[in-house]
């Protein structure tokens, strides 16, 4: 009993039997997942596998049909919509980075990072600016603070999006194919920031097609196909010796 309790304290996130369907299509079949504190968990798999949907179920951008979740020690039954205050507190625990960046185009880069802090954490303007500038510096974009997002490259926009999420001091960072919309060259600078973030001890769940990132930065690898988790474990082990034929098929397709 004791060891079990200790063990569950080690986990930042536990998903239990998450099921989600859109109309008649079941996208997720009872998917469970555990992510340790400080761990980088990569989710890979063919498109349509349900990777992004699973990620979006974590901060309830998608409402699961059934399942439960434990996040940073708080338990949630997600079979029903949460109360608004529970929902906001759950979302404040998670930061999310999207494939399409989703910066606010009518605000400067600095305002993008300041605004959520002002309204979500109720920080005052000068404190929020200080935090924002520090984070923009961390992602190498302090000199772009007064630019508008559209004046930035995709890679730069994504780094701002990471800074914006970090400014709210999340316990868990969710990345939804953060480099899929970027040229390899620009993807590199985003991956560098993510690598640095992982090294700093941030717990991360990353849906990605970057096998190299999943292998070298990831601690844990989850392979999904057709709404099922088909394999999981240490990245090198799975990539070098996949147990499932579906995994082998996917990996050989990606490596060509």
């Amino acid at each position: 009993m004791d060891t079990q309790r200790n063990e569950s304290e080690d986990f930042m996130l536990e998903l239990g039997a998450i099921t989600k369907s859109f109309g008649k299509n079941t996208i997720l079949h009872q998917v469970s997942l555990r992510v340790r504190k400080g761990e980088v968990c990569s989710i890979i798999g063919p498109s349509g596998a349900g990777k992004s949907t699973l990620l979006r179920c974590i901060n309830l951008l998608e409402q699961p049909d059934s399942g439960n979740m434990s996040l940073n020690g708080n338990f949630y039954d997600v079979s029903f919509p949460l109360r608004q205050d529970e929902l906001l507190s759950l979302r404040r625990t998670c930061g999310m980075v999207f494939q399409s960046f989703n910066l606010f185009p009518h605000m400067t880069v600095l305002q993008n990072v300041v605004f959520p802090q002002r309204h979500v954490l109720r920080r005052n303007e000068s404190e929020a600016r200080e935090v924002a500038l520090k984070l923009l510096d961390r992602v190498g974009l302090k000199n772009k603070a007064s630019s508008h997002p559209t004046q930035l490259s995709g890679g730069q926009q994504q780094r701002v999006a990471i800074a914006r999420a970090l400014a709210l001091e999340p316990k868990l960072m969710l990345f939804d194919e953060p480099t899929s919309a970027l040229d390899p060259e620009l993807a590199h600078e985003v991956l560098d920031v993510m690598r640095e973030l992982a090294d700093s001890g941030m717990t991360m769940v990353v849906v990605t097609h970057e096998m190299n990132f999943a292998r070298t930065v990831g601690d844990h690898l989850v392979v999904m196909a057709d709404g099922h988790k088909i394999e999981e474990g240490i990245p090198e082990a799975i990539m070098d010796h996949p147990q499932q034929s579906r995994t082998r098929q996917f990996l050989s397709a990606v490596n060509h």
């Binding site: 999310m96 999207f98 399409s100 989703n102 606010f104 009518h106 959520p116 979500v120 999420a165 709210l168």
Partner: peptide, 30 residues
């Protein structure tokens, strides 16, 4: 206004009225 703007606001934990009046509406008016 793209869906992503609503989703980013939600993911950041910004309340619905603030998201509407400060993020969505200004872009729509422009």
């Amino acid at each position: 206004v793209p869906r992503g703007q609503y989703e980013a606001s939600q993911a950041l934990g910004i309340s619905r009225p603030i998201a509407f009046f400060r993020i969505i509406a200004p872009q729509a008016v422009r």
